[in-house]
Each structure stands twice: as structure tokens, then as C-alpha cells.
């Protein structure tokens, strides 16, 4: 019985099994590019088998047992795999758009997270300030610097500047600016019942959608969407030149309600049935990508360990050469 178990363990930990499983994982990874299988739970299976293969090899492979550095390398690989698995279970990735002058709203985040992640974005509080983006000629986006204001207990605000590579770190979350940003008309909508709400309509990303600054928007409490179009009278940039992202002036908000078309300058009001809408002004919005604090440091440490161990093994082979026992000596492979 024990001997059978050892035989199975040796077979599982053999170099042949390793080769087969690595090829299998590679094929599945390649297929995942073209097929939606990458979201399937079955994707875990080949990688779990590979992990079992690695553990079995550590337990049975004579060469691993006889060479400490090689053993350390494989142990570090086990650590990497375990950490990556834990990382996935705790991972969180989200996107959010915040209008200038608005507080971050956790309910507006589109997030994906692992089973063990405790989503605590509700604790994040900051105010979006202005931001500056520079473009090189040919519409090449360069630096983004977004001003974030964080409320402090004494009633003041702490100002930080974040960018594509300089995150805002909030507890377990990191907020990075992205290419995604645009204009946000601020409107006040007074419903038929007299409820007044002021908010921002985030128009499509600019300048990516320079030619289509329009979207469908359903006012609060309304059942039918309005079509909203932002009329920008003057071009904001010349593609051939360097420019900075700026808000256009003299914009007008076009509202299309069925056959009716209304056009508002800043400060103007329109009646929509028995409701009213006022165009209060134009701001901009910034899109952030949010990354939950991951185990990336631990994965990096384990990877570093694996690299060092492999380096040590290579050096020992170079130094001691043929005096290293042959692989599989213990299990006769």
C-alpha cells in the first residue's frame, strides 16, 4: 500500500509528468487568448496538477534532495504559486470616474474582486481637484497630474498629486490615473415633484471620442432617457502641436427629448415636461483604475528567492560539475 503510494508519488513528481503538465498549461493559456475559457474554474485544474507535481518532486526526486540550491529553487516556486493563488483570492480591480469638484463615490466603482477580498471602498474619501495632462505633437499623452484633496480630521484638506505611476494609496487600495478622462456638464434637475438634484453627466472620453460627445441619460426619477450632446464651439487642441488638456469655453448643452431639441448655455434653464433642468457649467472628469493591495511584494520576494537559488545552483554546477549525483537516483528514474 505504502509502496503503491510512493510509486504514484514518484510518477506524479517525475520530470515526464512535469513536461506534460507544462505543455498542457501552455496550450490552455494559449487557448484562453481566443476562447472564453480563461474565466472558467476548470482553468485551475492543470495549474493545481502542476503544483502537485512540484510538491511530489520535492518529496521524491533524488536530485532535488541532494542539491540544496535546486531544492530551494523549487521550494521558492511552490511559494510563488501559493502566493499567486492567495493573491487572486484577495485581488481587487476596479474603475471609476470622478468629476472635478466631486467626492469619490464608492457606489460608482465597477469592481471585480476575489472571493476573500473584503471590499472596503466605502471608507475611501477624497475630493477630485483639477488635473493637468500634457500631450506631445501627434496626440501622444505624456504626464498626467491629478490633484486629490483628502479631508482631514481637523477640517482641513490634504492635497496630493497622483498620476499614472504615482498612485493614491488609501488603505488597501491604490488609485492610478488613466487615459480615460473627459468633460462633465453640471446640471441641476428639478423633478415634477420639486426635488432638486445637482450632478455631473460624464460625457464620453475625450479626446478619444472627440467627434461624439453625446450619450443617453435618464434624469433622476424619469423613465425615459434624454439624449445629451455637448457642443464644443472651438477645437480644444491641434493634433499636430503639443497641447494641454483644458476645458473648452462657451460650450452648450444640447438636450434631445424625442422630437424636441433644446440647447442651453451655462446658466440657462429648460422645461422638460413638468420638470426643469439647468446647465450650471462644465467641469472635467478623471478616470481611475483601482488596484486592491495585493501580495505583489511577497510574490516578488519569492521570485527573487527562486532566482537566487537558481543562480546558486548554476554556480555549484559550474564549480562542482560531475560530482552532483544524477537525477532520479533514488526512485530509479
Amino acid at each position: 500500500m505504502i509502496e503503491t503510494f510512493r510509486r504514484v508519488l514518484r510518477r506524479l513528481g517525475s520530470v515526464e509528468t512535469t513536461s506534460v503538465l507544462i505543455v498542457l498549461c501552455a496550450v490552455i493559456a494559449l487557448l484562453g487568448i481566443f476562447l472564453p475559457i480563461r474565466t472558467s474554474n476548470w482553468m485551475v485544474l492543470p495549474f493545481a496538477l502542476l503544483m502537485a507535481n512540484l510538491l511530489a518532486a520535492l518529496a521524491t526526486n533524488a536530485r532535488l534532495k541532494s542539491q540544496s540550491m535546486l531544492f530551494a529553487f523549487h521550494a521558492a516556486l511552490v511559494a510563488v504559486i501559493v502566493l499567486v493563488g492567495l493573491d487572486r483570492l484577495h485581488a481587487m480591480h476596479g474603475r471609476v470616474e470622478v468629476a472635478e469638484g466631486s467626492m469619490f463615490d464608492a457606489s460608482a466603482v465597477a469592481a471585480e474582486h476575489g472571493l476573500l477580498h473584503d471590499l472596503r471602498l466605502g471608507e475611501v474619501r477624497f475630493l477630485q481637484g483639477p488635473f493637468e495632462i500634457t500631450y506631445a505633437p501627434g496626440m501622444k499623452r505624456r504626464e498626467t497630474e491629478s490633484v486629490i484633496r483628502i479631508p482631514e480630521q481637523n477640517g482641513g484638506w490634504r492635497e496630493v498629486r497622483v498620476g499614472d505611476h504615482t498612485p493614491l494609496i488609501f488603505g488597501d487600495y491604490r488609485f492610478y490615473t488613466t487615459h480615460n478622462k473627459g468633460f462633465a456638464p453640471i446640471v441641476t434637475y428639478v423633478s415634477a415633484s420639486g426635488d432638486s438634484r445637482t450632478g455631473a453627466i460624464h460625457m464620453p472620453s475625450y479626446p478619444m471620442n472627440e467627434n461624439k460627445q453625446g450619450l443617453a441619460w435618464t434624469p433622476p426619477g424619469a423613465t425615459k432617457p434624454l439624449k445629451v450632446w455637448l457642443h464644443i464651439p472651438e477645437p480644444v487642441f491641434d493634433e499636430a502641436k503639443a497641447w494641454k488638456f483644458v476645458k473648452p469655453t462657451n460650450t452648450r448643452l444640447v438636450l434631445i427629448d424625442g422630437d424636441e431639441r433644446h440647447e442651453l448655455s451655462v446658466g440657462e434653464v429648460v422645461s422638460l415636461g413638468s420638470a426643469q433642468l439647468r446647465y450650471d457649467g462644465l467641469r472635467s472628469w478623471m478616470g481611475y483604475t483601482i488596484v486592491g493591495q495585493s501580495m505583489i511584494h511577497w510574490i516578488a520576494a519569492a521570485s527573487l528567492m527562486a532566482c537566487l537559488a537558481l543562480l546558486g545552483h548554476v554556480l555549484s554546477v559550474l564549480i562542482y560539475g560531475s560530482r552532483i549525483p544524477a537525477a532520479g537516483a533514488e526512485h530509479g528514474g
Binding site: 530551494a72 511559494a79 484633496r149 484638506w157 492635497e159 498629486r161 497622483v162 511577497w298 537559488a309
Partner: peptide, 28 residues
């Protein structure tokens, strides 16, 4: 040893500074 090295390196990497300057200011 593998475990010790991984933990030590992980702690060091995690404690490395990440974000930028702070300035007190009023909201816009």
C-alpha cells in the same frame, strides 16, 4: 532559509515608499 528570505524580502518591499507629496489646502 527559503521562507526566511521570502518573508524578509517581502517585508522590505512592502515598506518601501509609494506615494507623493502632501499639501494642506481648502477644497476647490
Amino acid at each position: 532559509l527559503v521562507l526566511v528570505v521570502i518573508v524578509a524580502a517581502g517585508v522590505v518591499l512592502e515598506k518601501m515608499p509609494g506615494s507623493g507629496p502632501t499639501v494642506a489646502t481648502a477644497p476647490q
